[in-house]
Design a protein around this nucleic acid. Structure first.
Length: 294
DNA sequence: TCCTCTCCTTGCTT
DNA sequence: AAAGCAAGGAGAG
């Protein structure tokens, strides 16, 4: 099955897939291959007459056109998220990153991925997630890749098996969280209905999940763009922008509320920018000064 | 309550 | 070759 999806606004596939939000995408010839749900997707960008199109080939169960549009967030132009953060236009190198699309990923896979992210790098996280899928994931018709296993499946593996995959100290956390999420008392739908603070508090109760991983799960897996995950790079970036070099993580997240409802997306741009381009200039806009105590 | 420090695995880099 | 580093969290002090 093939789909051709029209793309509003800029689109940079390499940036979207390698920026550290998702861990199952990799180059495949001139395209990118990724696993989403029960399908392998092979995607490429094409453009003609000023219109951009995303070409999607589906192997396995077809998510359907609407689900793909949602996953790749092609129902919006990413530039809208800068409307409440005009001062960020002054940050060199930020605007060219707007081709990065924040993906709407599946919450369990997102949670598991970021439990694996503790004190790891993107390459290691990808290897861990791919290893879990190869070992316990369902096969995909017509593809050599495998789906990411549901929590009920992962809840039945042994900690030693996770350690054998190289997950190290993250192994007991991932296993225990899988058991919690697999239990009947856990409901992602209920979580979606909660406010940001309550949903975050619920996630932090899971073993191996602190504020940062909870925010990543909310942002990448539950479509909550008000989440602003503060990791070591965003800590540096935001301290520099705010010119508050002693600020703690929660204080930085509160400061970033000024970036508006799309701050989670902007966090992703800042994360990439800070990693690739070094220190950022302090914001000097009127808003930055007036709301310094917000 | 909040802050700081250390430990926890692994593998690649310097 | 020893140390540093990588989308952190838990527990102690």
């Amino acid at each position: 099955m093939r789909h051709r999806l029209s793309v509003p606004g800029p689109l940079d596939l390499a940036l979207t897939f390698t920026c550290g939000q998702a861990f199952r995408w990799r180059p495949a010839g001139t395209r990118f291959s990724g696993v989403v749900g029960g399908a392998e997707l092979r995607v490429a960008r094409s453009a003609s007459q000023g219109r951009t199109t995303l070409e999607v080939e589906v192997l396995g169960s077809d998510p359907g056109r609407d689900a793909l549009t949602r996953y790749f967030r092609l129902d919006e132009d990413p530039r809208v998220h800068l409307e409440h953060a005009e001062e960020l236009r002054a940050v060199p190198g930020l605007v060219p990153l707007l081709g990065l699309r924040l993906l709407r990923q599946e919450p369990w896979e997102t949670l598991a991925s970021f439990i694996c992210s503790a004190a790891a790098n993107v390459r290691k996280i990808s290897g861990s997630i791919e290893g879990i899928a190869e070992r316990w994931g369902a096969t995909i018709a017509g593809s050599r890749r495998r789906a990411f296993p549901p929590p009920q499946r992962l809840a039945r593996v042994k900690e030693s098996e996770l350690r054998a995959l190289g997950l190290g100290f993250r192994s007991p956390y991932l296993l225990a969280s899988a058991k919690r999420v697999a239990s009947p008392s856990w409901s992602w739908e209920e979580l979606r209905g909660l406010g940001y603070d309550e949903a975050r508090a619920r996630l932090v109760e899971l073993p191996g999940v602190g504020p940062k991983i909870a925010d990543c799960t909310l942002l990448f897996g539950l479509d909550r763009l008000e989440a602003y995950p503060v990791d070591r790079w965003i800590r540096r970036a935001t301290r520099e922008l705010a010119a508050r070099h002693r600020a703690g993580d929660e204080e930085l997240a509160r400061w970033a509320v000024r970036f508006g409802p799309g701050r989670g997306y902007l966090q992703q741009l800042l994360f990439h920018l800070r990693r690739t381009s070094g220190p950022l200039p302090a914001l000097r806009g009127r808003a930055a000064r007036m709301r310094r105590t917000a």
